[in-house]
Amino acid sequence: MDRDTDQSDGPTVREEADQSGDRPAGPDRPPYGLIVATLAISLSAFTAVWGGWVGLGRMVGFGPVNLLPGIGDGLIVDLAITLPIGIEAYAAAALWVAVGGLVHGKGRWFAGVSAATALGLGAFGQAVYHLLEAQGKHTAPDWVVVFVSVLPVVVLGAAGVLLHLVMEGRKHR
């Protein structure tokens, strides 16, 4: 049959979608179901991770601190929040860089390895907290105190390297 004389039974799926204003189904459509499920999983994990890191932070001595002693006595921050924010946010950022194509070669390798390491540290921190909590301990052993206390410094260093790699990668595009 000739294309000009071909009579179909009606509009195609794409034509119907275009007429209704909706985007057509297919490879160009974002996976909304997966996005919603991932957000739900993230919210659930965030809640558990936040509680675990804050609890462990308090067991190792992170707690309320006046950030402006002698200048302003009203700026009190609980430093226990630095653990879930720093470690888990870094893990998410490094994972994004590793799989998002922001860097290549050694930069991608660093992003992937450091994302996996940060996620592993997060899992380890959760396990330690829940183990200590189940044992009824309110203070962590010395080695846990030292280990957890250096994590913000390690994460700061890794974040600095990651940012540098992304910025360098953008220069060479």
Rank of each mutant, 00 (worst) to 15 (best):
G74S: 15
V148P: 00
Q135C: 03
S149G: 06
L34N: 11
V65L: 11
W50S: 09
P64R: 14
Y129K: 06
G105K: 03
V144Y: 01
L75E: 10
Y32A: 05
G157W: 04
G55D: 04
V77Q: 08
K106M: 14
K106F: 12
D73W: 11
A37M: 12
A25N: 11
A116W: 05
A158G: 03
G51K: 11
T47C: 08
V36Y: 11
L131D: 03
L56W: 00
D73Q: 15
A116F: 06
A111T: 03
G52C: 07
L39I: 08
I71V: 15
I41L: 15
P30D: 05
L34G: 15
W143T: 03
G33E: 07
A37D: 14
I41F: 15
Y32P: 01
G61R: 01
F124S: 09
A123T: 06
I35E: 13
L67Q: 07
V150E: 00
G120M: 04
G157N: 00
M59F: 04
A111E: 08
I41T: 13
V49T: 13
V145F: 06
G55E: 03
M59G: 02
P30M: 04
A93H: 05
V77E: 09
A37R: 11
V148L: 02
P64D: 14
V153L: 06
T38V: 14
G74W: 15
G122D: 03
A37L: 13
L79M: 15
L67N: 10
V36G: 09
F124D: 06
S114D: 07
G72S: 15
W143N: 04
R108L: 05
A89V: 10
G52A: 07
W143V: 10
L119N: 10
G72V: 14
K137R: 12
L102A: 11
L75G: 08
T117L: 15
A116R: 07
A91W: 05
L83C: 03
V145W: 07
P27F: 06
L131R: 12
L56Q: 01
V146C: 05
P30W: 03
L39G: 08
P64Y: 12
V128L: 02
G125T: 01
H130N: 13
L56H: 00
V113R: 10
L39V: 11
G72I: 15
G70T: 04
P27N: 02
R29G: 02
A115P: 00
Q126S: 06
S42P: 02
V148I: 13
